[in-house]
Amino acid sequence: MPYLLAPNDPSASFPDVGEALADPDGLLAVGGDLSVARLVNAYRHGIFPWFSEGDPILWWSPDPRTVLRPPALRISRSLRKVLKRRSFGVTMDRDFPAVINACSAPRADGGGTWLVSEMISAYRALHVHGVAHSVEVWQDGTLAGGLYGVAIGGIFFGESMFTRVDNASKVALVHLCRFLDTQGFALIDCQVLTGHLLRMGAELLPRARFVRLVEQYRDQPTPRGSWDDGAVTFPEAPAPAGTVTEVRHAR
C-alpha cells in the first residue's frame, strides 16, 4: 500500500522513493496537500503529484525516469527550417496562467486532463513564488504553444506542454533547452518515457541514479523570480543534429 500523508503538515517527510510501488509504477504516497512547501519538498526528492478529478492527491516517483540533458536536444532538419524562418517569437513567464490553462485542455483523443483545478491553483502559486516557469510561443500576437515546469536547483522538472500551431511546442522546447544550458542546468526531468522524447535525445535513468542527481543539483543556485526579460526571442537551432517529432502533453 502507498504511504498515507497527513493533511495540513507540509513539512512532513515523504517516504524513501525506493518504497514506491512497481504496479502502478512509481506510486509512492496518497493524501497531503498541494501547498508550495509540500510541492517544493516533493520535487527536491524526485517526487511529483499526478491525479485525476475525484481522486485523492497521488504522489509518484517512477522507475526508470526519463530525462533530457539540455545540450543533447536533437533537432530535425525540418525544425531547423522552421527556426530559420523566425515565424515564432518566444517569451518566458510572460503569461503563465494562459500556458497552464492551455495545457489543461482535454485531449483530442478523449483522454481528459490530469490538470484539475486544484493542480492549476497549486502551480500558479509556485509561479508567484518564482519556482514554476513558463515558455510562451507566439505567432502574429497569438499564443501558439508553450510549456511549463518547476525549477529546483539545477533541475527543471517539466510538467506539460501544448501546441495550437504545428511546431510551436518544439520551438518552446528548443528555447527552454538553450536557456537552461546557459544557466548551468544539468537536467530536464521528462518523467514518463515516450517515443517522441527518445527521438529528441532523452534517456532513461534508473530511479536511484536520478534521485542521486537531484540530490547533487537541488541546492545549486537557480534564477528565481520571473524569467521574463522583457524581450521576444526568435530562437535559432542549437548545434546538435537529429530527429524531433511533434510533442504534445508530457503526460
Rank of each mutant, 00 (worst) to 15 (best):
D25H: 10
Y123C: 01
V116Y: 13
F157P: 00
H175K: 08
L204P: 05
Q139K: 10
G32N: 00
I152D: 04
G112K: 09
A202W: 00
G130K: 01
T222I: 13
G130L: 00
W138C: 03
V90T: 06
A12I: 11
E19P: 00
A172Y: 12
I100M: 10
G242R: 11
A144G: 07
A125D: 03
Q191V: 04
G89K: 02
M1E: 14
S78Y: 03
V36Q: 00
V131I: 14
R124K: 10
W59S: 10
N167P: 03
A132V: 00
R80M: 01
Y43M: 00
G201Q: 06
R94K: 12
G145D: 10
V135G: 05
G184W: 00
D55H: 15
E19V: 14
P10C: 02
S226R: 02
L205S: 15
V82C: 04
G26H: 08
E159R: 07
P97E: 07
E136T: 07
P49T: 02
S13L: 13
D33A: 03
D166T: 05
P221A: 09
A29Y: 01
G18V: 13
R251P: 15
S52E: 13
F185Q: 09
G184C: 01
Y217R: 09
G141S: 09
G54H: 02
G18W: 15
L4R: 15
E136P: 09
V17A: 15
S169G: 08
L73G: 03
A186Y: 13
E203H: 14
R44T: 13
C190V: 15
Y3Q: 14
K81S: 07
I155K: 02
R69C: 04
A125F: 01
M92T: 03
L34V: 04
L173V: 11
T113F: 06
L39T: 01
L173F: 13
T182F: 04
V150K: 02
S169H: 04
A144S: 10
D16A: 15
A239S: 12
V171R: 05
V116T: 12
G230Q: 05
D229I: 05
W114T: 04
N41G: 14
G89N: 06
